[in-house]
């Protein structure tokens, strides 16, 4: 019970931070205004942040499922899903989509490092939960 609540709540919080953080807390860069007055265009970091909404929400949904399912075996499976969501969340800004070209832009200085840190925490957290649950199942 205690593990279910702690692990579920932890995954939900980290998933929400990955999903909503780049939108509200550690924002990515804004749109670039075109020099010829032809409107504005979004930079790559914006699309990374959009992708993180989905990946973070998926992790949070898995966290809710961890809270609801009593079976340890099911929770191991859900934690494996969280683990791979964390890997994906870390890869989006660095490999899969990327961000702005200059290292001093807000996305590169704050948003991406924050996503990386929360992804690492989610990864370690889910891995710890998997190891703990496997040991409990074996006992």
């Amino acid at each position: 019970m205690k593990n279910r609540i702690l692990s579920g709540a932890g995954v939900i919080v980290l998933g929400l931070l990955i999903s909503l953080g780049p939108q509200f807390l550690f924002k990515v860069c804004g749109p670039v205004v075109s020099h010829d007055g032809g409107g504005s265009t979004w930079m790559k970091c914006h699309w990374s942040a959009q992708a993180e909404i989905g990946v973070g929400a998926l992790a949070a949904a898995l966290g809710i499922a961890i809270l609801l399912f009593v079976s340890r075996e099911t929770r191991i499976g859900l934690s494996v899903g969280v683990f791979f969501s964390a890997v994906l969340a870390a890869l989006i800004p660095h490999v899969l989509i990327g961000g702005c070209s200059m290292a001093s832009m807000p996305c590169q200085t704050l948003a991406f490092p924050a996503i990386t840190v929360f992804s690492i925490l989610l990864l370690v957290f889910s891995l710890g939960n998997i190891v703990y649950l496997i040991r409990r199942v074996k006992q």
Partner: peptide, 11 residues
């Protein structure tokens, strides 16, 4: 430079 140039911001 222009915002839309090389670096997503004027440099």
């Amino acid at each position: 430079s222009l915002s839309a140039d090389c670096c997503d911001a004027p440099v």
